[in-house]
Amino acid sequence: MFTAVRTVMVFADDPEKCARWWASVLDTEVRLEVDDGRVYAWLDVSGIELGFHPADETRNPRGGSPVVYWAVDHVDAVRTRLLDAGCTHHRGPIEAEPGRKICQLTDPFGTIFGIDGPESTSA
């Protein structure tokens, strides 16, 4: 049934600003589309399309999406980098199993996301 994550959609008050922040953190390019004055933005991250869609309180409220966990090489180092870039702590870090940590952060635009990987603090 499911084979892989194809797209992660974030609903944001300012999709372009949100996408540009993520692009700077992930060192990638932003693709923009403007349709009837509404901006849609996309990044390609490790084969996954990360989309930023205008929030709509009726159909797609900001923060109304599931929490997506991104695989990382070193949870502690990546968490520190994201906090320094403007994210805030949400939950964790916790040891999900021996040698594996997970935690949740909130980006500067209110989207909660997770990181998952080894607990090593080395980069």
Rank of each mutant, 00 (worst) to 15 (best):
D36Y: 10
S46T: 07
E33N: 10
W42Q: 15
L26I: 06
W22I: 01
D13F: 03
C18N: 05
L43C: 04
A19I: 01
L26S: 03
D35S: 14
D36F: 11
D14T: 10
V30C: 04
V10N: 14
R31C: 05
D44A: 09
D14G: 03
V45E: 08
L43N: 02
V39I: 14
R6G: 08
D27W: 00
E33I: 09
A23T: 02
D14K: 10
L43F: 03
D35R: 15
V34I: 14
D35Q: 15
R6M: 09
F11L: 08
V10M: 13
S46R: 08
D13H: 12
V39Q: 11
V25P: 04
E16G: 08
V45L: 09
V25N: 00
S24M: 00
F11H: 14
W22C: 02
D44T: 11
A23L: 02
Y40I: 08
W42V: 10
A23M: 02
R20H: 04
W21I: 01
M9Y: 09
L32K: 13
A41T: 05
F11R: 13
F11V: 07
W21C: 01
L32C: 13
A23H: 02
D36E: 15
D13L: 09
V10A: 09
L32A: 10
K17E: 10
A19Q: 01
K17H: 05
T7N: 11
A41P: 05
E33G: 07
V10K: 08
A41H: 07
A41E: 06
V39D: 09
R38E: 15
T7D: 10
C18G: 00
V34R: 14
T28K: 01
A19L: 00
Y40T: 08
D36Q: 15
V30S: 05
V34G: 00
V34W: 04
P15Y: 07
E16L: 15
D36R: 15
C18R: 02
A23C: 01
M9I: 12
R6P: 01
Y40L: 12
R31M: 12
G37C: 08
D44G: 06
P15Q: 07
V30H: 05
L43D: 05
V30L: 03
V30I: 05
E16N: 03
V34T: 15
A23S: 05
G37P: 09
M9F: 10
T28V: 07
A12Q: 11
E29K: 14
V8S: 12
W21T: 03
D27C: 03
W42F: 15
K17S: 11
W42C: 10
R31S: 14
S46Y: 04
D27N: 11
R6H: 13
S24L: 00
S24A: 08
E29D: 13
W22K: 01
R38K: 15
R6I: 07
M9L: 13
S46W: 03
S24I: 00
V34Y: 04
L43T: 04
E16Y: 03
P15C: 07
V39F: 04
R31Q: 14
D35E: 15
V25W: 03
G37D: 14
V45T: 08
S24T: 05
R6L: 08
Y40A: 02
E33H: 11
D35W: 12
D13C: 01
F11K: 09
G37S: 12
S24D: 11
V39L: 07
L43E: 04
W22Q: 03
V30N: 02
M9A: 13
E33W: 09
A12G: 09
A12C: 14
T7R: 10
E33A: 12
V8Q: 10
